[in-house]
Design a protein around this nucleic acid. Structure first.
Lengths: 191, 191
DNA sequence: TGTACATCAGTGAACGCGCGTTCACTGATGTAC
DNA sequence: TGTACATCAGTGAACGCGCGTTCACTGATGTAC
Protein backbone atom coordinates (compact mmCIF):
# COMPACT_ATOMS: atom_id res chain seq x y z
CA UNK A 1 0.00 0.00 0.00
CA UNK A 2 1.78 3.10 -1.18
CA UNK A 3 0.57 6.47 -0.01
CA UNK A 4 -2.74 6.98 -1.73
CA UNK A 5 -1.97 9.68 -4.24
CA UNK A 6 -4.66 10.70 -6.65
CA UNK A 7 -4.59 8.68 -9.82
CA UNK A 8 -1.91 6.37 -8.54
CA UNK A 9 -4.27 3.47 -9.13
CA UNK A 10 -6.13 2.32 -12.19
CA UNK A 11 -8.78 4.90 -11.80
CA UNK A 12 -7.88 6.54 -8.58
CA UNK A 13 -10.69 5.83 -6.19
CA UNK A 14 -13.53 4.58 -8.31
CA UNK A 15 -15.74 3.76 -5.38
CA UNK A 16 -15.77 7.36 -4.29
CA UNK A 17 -16.07 8.58 -7.87
CA UNK A 18 -19.15 6.43 -8.39
CA UNK A 19 -20.75 7.62 -5.21
CA UNK A 20 -20.24 11.24 -6.05
CA UNK A 21 -21.44 10.76 -9.60
CA UNK A 22 -24.54 9.09 -8.22
CA UNK A 23 -25.04 11.82 -5.66
CA UNK A 24 -24.75 14.48 -8.33
CA UNK A 25 -27.37 12.72 -10.39
CA UNK A 26 -29.75 12.53 -7.48
CA UNK A 27 -29.18 16.19 -6.81
CA UNK A 28 -29.71 17.07 -10.46
CA UNK A 29 -33.00 15.20 -10.44
CA UNK A 30 -31.83 12.79 -13.12
CA UNK A 31 -33.19 9.28 -13.13
CA UNK A 32 -30.87 7.03 -11.26
CA UNK A 33 -29.53 3.76 -12.56
CA UNK A 34 -26.28 1.87 -12.35
CA UNK A 35 -25.66 2.42 -16.02
CA UNK A 36 -26.35 6.12 -15.85
CA UNK A 37 -23.92 6.42 -13.00
CA UNK A 38 -21.16 4.67 -14.89
CA UNK A 39 -21.80 6.87 -17.90
CA UNK A 40 -21.41 9.96 -15.77
CA UNK A 41 -18.30 8.57 -14.14
CA UNK A 42 -16.86 7.81 -17.58
CA UNK A 43 -16.32 4.18 -16.85
CA UNK A 44 -17.58 0.89 -18.25
CA UNK A 45 -20.97 -0.46 -17.24
CA UNK A 46 -19.51 -3.28 -15.27
CA UNK A 47 -16.88 -1.43 -13.32
CA UNK A 48 -19.12 -0.82 -10.28
CA UNK A 49 -19.26 -4.54 -9.60
CA UNK A 50 -15.69 -4.38 -8.29
CA UNK A 51 -16.90 -2.09 -5.52
CA UNK A 52 -20.57 -2.85 -4.96
CA UNK A 53 -22.29 -6.19 -4.86
CA UNK A 54 -25.19 -4.87 -6.87
CA UNK A 55 -27.33 -1.86 -7.53
CA UNK A 56 -28.89 -1.98 -4.10
CA UNK A 57 -25.53 -1.87 -2.41
CA UNK A 58 -24.68 1.38 -4.16
CA UNK A 59 -28.04 2.79 -3.21
CA UNK A 60 -27.54 1.84 0.40
CA UNK A 61 -24.17 3.55 0.44
CA UNK A 62 -25.85 6.70 -0.84
CA UNK A 63 -28.48 6.45 1.85
CA UNK A 64 -25.80 6.15 4.52
CA UNK A 65 -24.14 9.29 3.21
CA UNK A 66 -27.50 10.99 3.26
CA UNK A 67 -28.13 10.10 6.88
CA UNK A 68 -24.69 11.39 7.77
CA UNK A 69 -25.43 14.69 6.06
CA UNK A 70 -28.82 15.00 7.65
CA UNK A 71 -27.36 14.40 11.09
CA UNK A 72 -24.76 17.05 10.37
CA UNK A 73 -27.48 19.51 9.34
CA UNK A 74 -29.42 18.86 12.51
CA UNK A 75 -26.38 19.14 14.70
CA UNK A 76 -25.41 22.41 13.13
CA UNK A 77 -27.80 24.73 14.93
CA UNK A 78 -25.46 25.21 17.84
CA UNK A 79 -25.54 22.82 20.71
CA UNK A 80 -27.99 20.84 22.74
CA UNK A 81 -31.49 22.20 22.34
CA UNK A 82 -32.82 23.90 25.41
CA UNK A 83 -36.32 24.94 24.51
CA UNK A 84 -39.35 24.10 22.47
CA UNK A 85 -38.20 26.71 20.00
CA UNK A 86 -34.89 24.93 19.55
CA UNK A 87 -36.75 21.71 18.86
CA UNK A 88 -38.89 23.43 16.29
CA UNK A 89 -35.69 24.38 14.48
CA UNK A 90 -34.82 20.70 14.28
CA UNK A 91 -38.05 20.09 12.41
CA UNK A 92 -37.37 23.08 10.18
CA UNK A 93 -33.89 21.80 9.33
CA UNK A 94 -35.23 18.31 8.69
CA UNK A 95 -37.84 19.51 6.24
CA UNK A 96 -35.37 21.88 4.60
CA UNK A 97 -33.02 18.95 4.03
CA UNK A 98 -35.79 16.94 2.39
CA UNK A 99 -36.75 19.76 0.08
CA UNK A 100 -33.19 20.65 -0.79
CA UNK A 101 -32.25 17.07 -1.67
CA UNK A 102 -35.52 15.36 -2.54
CA UNK A 103 -34.18 12.46 -4.54
CA UNK A 104 -31.66 11.60 -1.85
CA UNK A 105 -34.37 11.83 0.77
CA UNK A 106 -36.42 9.34 -1.20
CA UNK A 107 -33.50 6.98 -1.44
CA UNK A 108 -33.01 7.21 2.31
CA UNK A 109 -36.64 6.65 3.18
CA UNK A 110 -38.37 5.34 0.12
CA UNK A 111 -38.08 1.67 0.83
CA UNK A 112 -37.92 -0.67 3.79
CA UNK A 113 -34.50 -1.18 5.30
CA UNK A 114 -33.40 -4.60 4.16
CA UNK A 115 -31.20 -5.93 6.92
CA UNK A 116 -31.58 -5.11 10.53
CA UNK A 117 -27.89 -4.62 11.07
CA UNK A 118 -26.45 -3.06 7.99
CA UNK A 119 -24.83 0.33 7.93
CA UNK A 120 -27.94 1.85 6.57
CA UNK A 121 -30.24 0.75 9.35
CA UNK A 122 -27.62 1.87 11.85
CA UNK A 123 -27.53 5.30 10.28
CA UNK A 124 -31.31 5.57 10.58
CA UNK A 125 -31.16 4.50 14.20
CA UNK A 126 -28.50 7.10 14.90
CA UNK A 127 -30.94 9.71 13.67
CA UNK A 128 -33.64 8.40 15.96
CA UNK A 129 -31.29 8.54 18.92
CA UNK A 130 -30.21 12.06 18.19
CA UNK A 131 -33.83 13.14 18.23
CA UNK A 132 -34.61 11.22 21.38
CA UNK A 133 -31.63 12.80 23.12
CA UNK A 134 -32.68 16.23 21.99
CA UNK A 135 -36.17 15.75 23.35
CA UNK A 136 -34.79 14.33 26.54
CA UNK A 137 -32.74 17.46 27.03
CA UNK A 138 -35.76 19.67 26.83
CA UNK A 139 -38.35 17.47 28.51
CA UNK A 140 -36.45 15.19 30.86
CA UNK A 141 -39.54 14.09 32.72
CA UNK A 142 -41.62 13.08 29.69
CA UNK A 143 -41.97 9.70 28.01
CA UNK A 144 -38.99 10.36 25.80
CA UNK A 145 -39.61 7.42 23.51
CA UNK A 146 -43.15 8.45 22.64
CA UNK A 147 -42.06 12.04 22.34
CA UNK A 148 -39.15 11.21 20.07
CA UNK A 149 -41.40 9.22 17.76
CA UNK A 150 -43.85 12.08 17.69
CA UNK A 151 -41.18 14.66 16.93
CA UNK A 152 -39.63 12.54 14.23
CA UNK A 153 -43.00 11.66 12.81
CA UNK A 154 -44.05 15.26 12.66
CA UNK A 155 -40.90 16.44 10.93
CA UNK A 156 -40.88 13.48 8.59
CA UNK A 157 -44.53 13.75 7.72
CA UNK A 158 -44.32 17.43 6.92
CA UNK A 159 -41.24 16.74 4.82
CA UNK A 160 -43.08 14.09 2.82
CA UNK A 161 -46.23 16.13 2.39
CA UNK A 162 -44.35 19.16 1.11
CA UNK A 163 -42.16 16.98 -1.04
CA UNK A 164 -45.11 15.25 -2.66
CA UNK A 165 -47.02 18.44 -3.20
CA UNK A 166 -49.79 17.66 -0.74
CA UNK A 167 -48.99 20.76 1.23
CA UNK A 168 -48.05 23.93 -0.55
CA UNK A 169 -45.85 26.89 0.14
CA UNK A 170 -44.46 29.55 -2.10
CA UNK A 171 -40.87 29.56 -0.92
CA UNK A 172 -38.52 27.69 1.32
CA UNK A 173 -38.82 30.48 3.85
CA UNK A 174 -42.53 30.01 3.92
CA UNK A 175 -42.10 26.27 4.38
CA UNK A 176 -39.81 26.95 7.31
CA UNK A 177 -42.30 29.26 8.88
CA UNK A 178 -45.16 26.85 8.48
CA UNK A 179 -43.21 23.95 9.87
CA UNK A 180 -42.27 26.07 12.83
CA UNK A 181 -45.82 27.11 13.56
CA UNK A 182 -47.17 23.61 13.03
CA UNK A 183 -44.68 22.32 15.54
CA UNK A 184 -45.42 24.99 18.09
CA UNK A 185 -49.16 24.74 17.53
CA UNK A 186 -49.39 21.07 18.26
CA UNK A 187 -47.00 21.23 21.16
CA UNK A 188 -49.11 23.73 23.00
CA UNK A 189 -52.53 22.46 22.20
CA UNK A 190 -53.08 20.29 25.22
CA UNK A 191 -52.30 23.03 27.67
CA UNK B 1 -77.95 2.51 -23.72
CA UNK B 2 -79.72 -0.57 -22.49
CA UNK B 3 -79.89 -1.23 -18.80
CA UNK B 4 -76.36 -2.09 -17.79
CA UNK B 5 -76.55 -5.80 -17.19
CA UNK B 6 -73.37 -7.63 -16.43
CA UNK B 7 -71.62 -8.83 -19.53
CA UNK B 8 -74.02 -7.03 -21.80
CA UNK B 9 -71.09 -5.24 -23.35
CA UNK B 10 -67.94 -6.51 -24.95
CA UNK B 11 -66.33 -7.14 -21.67
CA UNK B 12 -68.85 -5.79 -19.25
CA UNK B 13 -67.19 -2.90 -17.50
CA UNK B 14 -63.53 -3.18 -18.30
CA UNK B 15 -62.63 0.08 -16.66
CA UNK B 16 -63.83 -1.20 -13.32
CA UNK B 17 -62.33 -4.62 -13.94
CA UNK B 18 -58.93 -3.07 -14.59
CA UNK B 19 -59.11 -0.95 -11.49
CA UNK B 20 -59.99 -3.86 -9.28
CA UNK B 21 -57.34 -6.08 -10.84
CA UNK B 22 -54.82 -3.32 -10.19
CA UNK B 23 -56.04 -2.84 -6.64
CA UNK B 24 -55.77 -6.55 -5.96
CA UNK B 25 -52.22 -6.53 -7.21
CA UNK B 26 -51.29 -3.63 -5.00
CA UNK B 27 -52.87 -5.39 -2.08
CA UNK B 28 -51.07 -8.62 -2.90
CA UNK B 29 -47.76 -6.78 -2.97
CA UNK B 30 -47.15 -7.70 -6.58
CA UNK B 31 -45.18 -5.35 -8.76
CA UNK B 32 -47.51 -3.07 -10.59
CA UNK B 33 -47.44 -2.44 -14.32
CA UNK B 34 -49.99 -1.89 -17.03
CA UNK B 35 -49.13 -5.20 -18.58
CA UNK B 36 -49.39 -7.11 -15.35
CA UNK B 37 -52.80 -5.60 -14.77
CA UNK B 38 -54.05 -6.66 -18.19
CA UNK B 39 -52.71 -10.15 -17.62
CA UNK B 40 -54.62 -10.39 -14.38
CA UNK B 41 -57.76 -9.01 -15.98
CA UNK B 42 -57.42 -11.54 -18.78
CA UNK B 43 -57.39 -8.95 -21.48
CA UNK B 44 -54.99 -7.82 -24.17
CA UNK B 45 -52.12 -5.49 -23.35
CA UNK B 46 -53.62 -2.61 -25.22
CA UNK B 47 -57.16 -2.79 -23.96
CA UNK B 48 -56.59 -0.28 -21.14
CA UNK B 49 -55.93 2.47 -23.64
CA UNK B 50 -59.67 2.58 -24.37
CA UNK B 51 -60.25 3.68 -20.78
CA UNK B 52 -57.09 5.36 -19.59
CA UNK B 53 -54.87 7.77 -21.43
CA UNK B 54 -51.77 6.09 -20.16
CA UNK B 55 -50.27 4.28 -17.24
CA UNK B 56 -50.29 7.38 -15.07
CA UNK B 57 -53.99 7.87 -15.57
CA UNK B 58 -54.71 4.41 -14.23
CA UNK B 59 -52.45 5.05 -11.29
CA UNK B 60 -54.20 8.32 -10.54
CA UNK B 61 -57.56 6.58 -10.58
CA UNK B 62 -56.22 4.11 -8.04
CA UNK B 63 -54.98 6.94 -5.88
CA UNK B 64 -58.38 8.59 -5.98
CA UNK B 65 -59.98 5.36 -4.84
CA UNK B 66 -57.41 5.16 -2.09
CA UNK B 67 -58.19 8.63 -0.84
CA UNK B 68 -61.87 7.81 -0.83
CA UNK B 69 -61.24 4.69 1.24
CA UNK B 70 -58.96 6.51 3.62
CA UNK B 71 -61.55 9.21 4.16
CA UNK B 72 -64.13 6.52 4.83
CA UNK B 73 -61.83 4.88 7.38
CA UNK B 74 -61.31 8.16 9.15
CA UNK B 75 -64.99 9.02 9.15
CA UNK B 76 -65.87 5.65 10.56
CA UNK B 77 -65.03 6.27 14.19
CA UNK B 78 -68.42 7.70 14.94
CA UNK B 79 -69.01 11.37 14.46
CA UNK B 80 -67.26 14.63 14.89
CA UNK B 81 -64.30 14.30 17.21
CA UNK B 82 -64.79 16.02 20.51
CA UNK B 83 -61.56 15.47 22.37
CA UNK B 84 -57.85 15.06 22.04
CA UNK B 85 -58.42 11.34 22.42
CA UNK B 86 -60.75 11.29 19.44
CA UNK B 87 -58.12 13.05 17.40
CA UNK B 88 -55.53 10.51 18.43
CA UNK B 89 -57.80 7.85 16.98
CA UNK B 90 -57.68 9.64 13.67
CA UNK B 91 -53.93 9.26 13.66
CA UNK B 92 -54.26 5.62 14.65
CA UNK B 93 -56.68 4.94 11.81
CA UNK B 94 -54.46 6.79 9.36
CA UNK B 95 -51.40 4.74 10.23
CA UNK B 96 -53.42 1.54 10.25
CA UNK B 97 -54.61 2.27 6.75
CA UNK B 98 -51.05 2.80 5.55
CA UNK B 99 -49.85 -0.45 7.08
CA UNK B 100 -52.82 -2.45 5.87
CA UNK B 101 -52.50 -1.23 2.28
CA UNK B 102 -48.89 -0.16 1.92
CA UNK B 103 -48.60 -0.31 -1.84
CA UNK B 104 -51.76 1.72 -2.29
CA UNK B 105 -50.51 4.22 0.23
CA UNK B 106 -47.32 4.61 -1.77
CA UNK B 107 -49.30 5.17 -4.93
CA UNK B 108 -51.33 7.83 -3.19
CA UNK B 109 -48.36 9.66 -1.73
CA UNK B 110 -45.28 8.42 -3.49
CA UNK B 111 -45.02 11.08 -6.11
CA UNK B 112 -45.90 14.71 -6.61
CA UNK B 113 -49.42 15.44 -7.75
CA UNK B 114 -49.16 16.36 -11.39
CA UNK B 115 -51.97 18.76 -12.04
CA UNK B 116 -53.33 21.19 -9.55
CA UNK B 117 -56.92 20.51 -10.45
CA UNK B 118 -57.24 16.86 -11.28
CA UNK B 119 -59.38 14.46 -9.32
CA UNK B 120 -56.41 13.19 -7.49
CA UNK B 121 -55.32 16.52 -6.10
CA UNK B 122 -58.90 17.23 -5.13
CA UNK B 123 -59.08 13.97 -3.22
CA UNK B 124 -55.92 14.88 -1.32
CA UNK B 125 -57.33 18.29 -0.53
CA UNK B 126 -60.54 16.73 0.74
CA UNK B 127 -58.44 14.78 3.19
CA UNK B 128 -56.72 17.93 4.36
CA UNK B 129 -60.06 19.63 4.89
CA UNK B 130 -61.48 16.76 6.85
CA UNK B 131 -58.53 16.95 9.20
CA UNK B 132 -58.74 20.70 9.50
CA UNK B 133 -62.44 20.47 10.32
CA UNK B 134 -61.79 17.81 12.90
CA UNK B 135 -59.16 19.92 14.60
CA UNK B 136 -61.39 22.94 14.42
CA UNK B 137 -64.10 21.04 16.24
CA UNK B 138 -61.84 20.26 19.12
CA UNK B 139 -59.79 23.43 19.26
CA UNK B 140 -61.93 26.17 17.81
CA UNK B 141 -59.73 28.96 19.10
CA UNK B 142 -56.41 27.65 17.78
CA UNK B 143 -54.66 28.38 14.48
CA UNK B 144 -56.50 25.62 12.71
CA UNK B 145 -54.34 25.68 9.60
CA UNK B 146 -51.10 25.19 11.50
CA UNK B 147 -52.73 22.62 13.69
CA UNK B 148 -54.16 20.69 10.78
CA UNK B 149 -50.78 20.55 9.09
CA UNK B 150 -49.25 19.36 12.30
CA UNK B 151 -51.84 16.67 12.84
CA UNK B 152 -51.64 15.46 9.30
CA UNK B 153 -47.86 15.62 9.32
CA UNK B 154 -47.66 13.63 12.49
CA UNK B 155 -49.98 10.89 11.30
CA UNK B 156 -48.39 10.81 7.89
CA UNK B 157 -44.85 10.77 9.19
CA UNK B 158 -45.52 7.94 11.60
CA UNK B 159 -47.21 6.02 8.80
CA UNK B 160 -44.17 6.42 6.56
CA UNK B 161 -41.67 5.60 9.25
CA UNK B 162 -43.44 2.40 10.25
CA UNK B 163 -44.01 1.52 6.63
CA UNK B 164 -40.36 1.91 5.74
CA UNK B 165 -39.15 0.06 8.77
CA UNK B 166 -37.57 3.05 10.46
CA UNK B 167 -39.76 2.58 13.48
CA UNK B 168 -40.55 -0.87 14.73
CA UNK B 169 -43.43 -2.56 16.45
CA UNK B 170 -44.31 -6.19 16.90
CA UNK B 171 -47.98 -6.06 15.96
CA UNK B 172 -50.55 -3.72 14.57
CA UNK B 173 -51.96 -3.32 18.06
CA UNK B 174 -48.60 -2.16 19.27
CA UNK B 175 -48.35 0.28 16.38
CA UNK B 176 -51.75 1.67 17.32
CA UNK B 177 -50.73 2.09 20.90
CA UNK B 178 -47.50 3.81 20.02
CA UNK B 179 -49.15 6.16 17.61
CA UNK B 180 -51.69 7.03 20.26
CA UNK B 181 -49.09 7.77 22.88
CA UNK B 182 -46.91 9.71 20.48
CA UNK B 183 -49.86 11.87 19.60
CA UNK B 184 -50.87 12.46 23.19
CA UNK B 185 -47.28 13.00 24.30
CA UNK B 186 -46.57 15.78 21.87
CA UNK B 187 -49.93 17.42 22.37
CA UNK B 188 -49.39 17.86 26.04
CA UNK B 189 -45.75 18.73 26.13
CA UNK B 190 -46.07 22.46 26.06
CA UNK B 191 -48.40 22.61 28.98
C1' DT C 1 -89.20 -5.94 -38.93
C1' DG C 2 -84.98 -5.91 -41.87
C1' DT C 3 -81.12 -4.14 -43.95
C1' DA C 4 -76.88 -0.86 -44.26
C1' DC C 5 -73.95 1.57 -41.84
C1' DA C 6 -71.25 3.92 -38.00
C1' DT C 7 -69.27 3.50 -33.75
C1' DC C 8 -66.03 1.99 -30.73
C1' DA C 9 -64.26 -1.77 -27.26
C1' DG C 10 -60.94 -5.09 -27.51
C1' DT C 11 -56.98 -7.69 -30.39
C1' DG C 12 -52.31 -9.14 -31.63
C1' DA C 13 -48.04 -8.18 -33.52
C1' DA C 14 -44.43 -5.25 -33.30
C1' DC C 15 -41.47 -1.03 -32.01
C1' DG C 16 -37.62 0.65 -29.29
C1' DC C 17 -36.06 1.29 -24.74
C1' DG C 18 -32.93 1.10 -20.68
C1' DC C 19 -32.12 -1.83 -17.39
C1' DG C 20 -29.18 -5.25 -14.17
C1' DT C 21 -26.11 -8.70 -14.58
C1' DT C 22 -22.80 -12.52 -16.63
C1' DC C 23 -18.75 -13.68 -18.87
C1' DA C 24 -14.19 -14.20 -20.54
C1' DC C 25 -10.80 -10.82 -21.24
C1' DT C 26 -6.81 -7.28 -20.63
C1' DG C 27 -3.47 -4.87 -18.63
C1' DA C 28 -1.51 -2.26 -14.86
C1' DT C 29 0.09 -2.67 -10.02
C1' DG C 30 2.26 -5.04 -6.26
C1' DT C 31 5.13 -9.02 -4.47
C1' DA C 32 8.61 -13.01 -3.99
C1' DC C 33 12.94 -14.43 -4.75
C1' DT D 1 18.31 -4.55 -9.10
C1' DG D 2 15.89 -7.76 -12.26
C1' DT D 3 12.88 -11.21 -13.55
C1' DA D 4 8.53 -14.24 -13.01
C1' DC D 5 4.35 -14.39 -11.25
C1' DA D 6 -0.14 -13.31 -8.79
C1' DT D 7 -3.55 -10.13 -7.97
C1' DC D 8 -7.32 -7.57 -9.12
C1' DA D 9 -9.45 -3.05 -11.15
C1' DG D 10 -11.55 -1.98 -15.25
C1' DT D 11 -13.28 -3.57 -20.28
C1' DG D 12 -16.56 -4.71 -23.94
C1' DA D 13 -19.77 -7.66 -25.85
C1' DA D 14 -23.69 -9.99 -24.97
C1' DC D 15 -27.78 -12.15 -22.33
C1' DG D 16 -32.69 -11.85 -21.31
C1' DC D 17 -36.09 -9.05 -19.29
C1' DG D 18 -40.47 -6.45 -18.83
C1' DC D 19 -41.91 -2.36 -19.88
C1' DG D 20 -45.11 1.53 -22.23
C1' DT D 21 -46.90 2.59 -26.39
C1' DT D 22 -48.14 2.51 -31.71
C1' DC D 23 -50.55 0.55 -35.35
C1' DA D 24 -53.77 -1.46 -38.41
C1' DC D 25 -57.15 -4.75 -37.49
C1' DT D 26 -61.71 -7.24 -36.09
C1' DG D 27 -66.03 -7.86 -34.64
C1' DA D 28 -69.86 -6.91 -31.61
C1' DT D 29 -73.20 -3.28 -30.32
C1' DG D 30 -76.22 0.54 -31.33
C1' DT D 31 -78.66 3.54 -34.84
C1' DA D 32 -81.11 5.36 -39.17
C1' DC D 33 -84.30 4.51 -42.42
Amino acid sequence: MSTSEKGSYHHGDLRTALLSAAMEMLEAGEPFSLRAVTRRAGVSQTAPYRHFKDRDALESALAVEGFRDLLADLGQGGNPPASLQDLAEFAVAYVAFALRRPALFRVMFGKPCDDADDERAKAADALHELLADALDQVFPEADSSALASAGWGLAHGLACLYLDGKLHAASSDEVAERVRSAFLAIASVGS
